[in-house]
């Protein structure tokens, strides 16, 4: 089995660095745009995320997670931390609730999803539409829970419950998939 990009980066393969940026740059940039909003801040954040990625490349274990999941974890952690540091809510720009929901892809139709993302998609399909919508706005768009409650016209407690239960469902799906892969 060939080494992953991050394993090559950790091993000192400088050619893998550019390949890694090309492979995951779009992912990190898109995450930053969605979670940070402001373009200049997002650019700064992308640079931070990649430095974080280089530091942590040696910690990547392909037996535990897909490379894209690992990158997304590192990026989300750094971006959420940065957003709090800036005490700035993500700019939602022209995206309305309806736009965001409409933009949410048909997860069943994403046949090229791999690994954790595919299992997450399967778990999301089992959620009620409102739960899925809340989770999408909270996780992918980075909307504060109160904003989601206000926009969707549902109680804040319901939003929080949807987020919590949705994540539990996805986590269970991932755990089951991992268990199946091991056995």
């Amino acid at each position: 089995m060939s080494e992953s990009l991050l394993q090559r980066v950790a091993a000192g393969d400088t050619a893998a660095v550019a390949a890694c940026v090309d492979a995951f740059g779009g992912l990190v940039w898109s995450l930053a745009r969605r979670l940070i909003g402001h373009a200049e801040e997002a650019e700064d954040a992308v640079q931070e995320v990649f430095i974080e990625l280089w530091k942590n490349a040696a910690r990547f274990d392909p037996e535990v997670a897909a490379e894209s999941t690992f990158v997304a974890m590192i990026a989300r952690r750094r971006l959420i931390d940065r957003r709090r540091r800036l005490a700035r809510r993500p700019e939602r720009g022209a995206v309305s609730v309806d736009d965001a929901v409409l933009a949410a892809p048909d997860v069943l139709g994403q046949v090229d999803l791999k690994d954790e993302a595919a299992h997450a998609a399967a778990a999301l399909e089992q959620l009620k539409p409102e739960q899925r919508r809340v989770l999408q706005l909270a996780v992918c768009q980075g909307w504060p829970h109160q904003v989601i409650a206000d926009r969707l016209g549902i109680p804040l407690g319901t939003v929080k419950t949807h987020v919590r239960r949705g994540l539990i469902k996805v986590r269970e799906e991932l755990a089951a998939a991992r268990k199946e892969a091991v056995s």
């Binding site: 997304a72 974890m73 949410a104 997860v107 993302a117 994540l167 986590r171």
Partner: peptide, 17 residues
């Protein structure tokens, strides 16, 4: 964290600039 990352990848797939 892995679940949130996976949800992000699942729902945002194809929406990568």
């Amino acid at each position: 964290e892995p679940a949130a990352a996976a949800v992000d990848l699942a729902l945002a797939d194809g929406d990568v600039d």
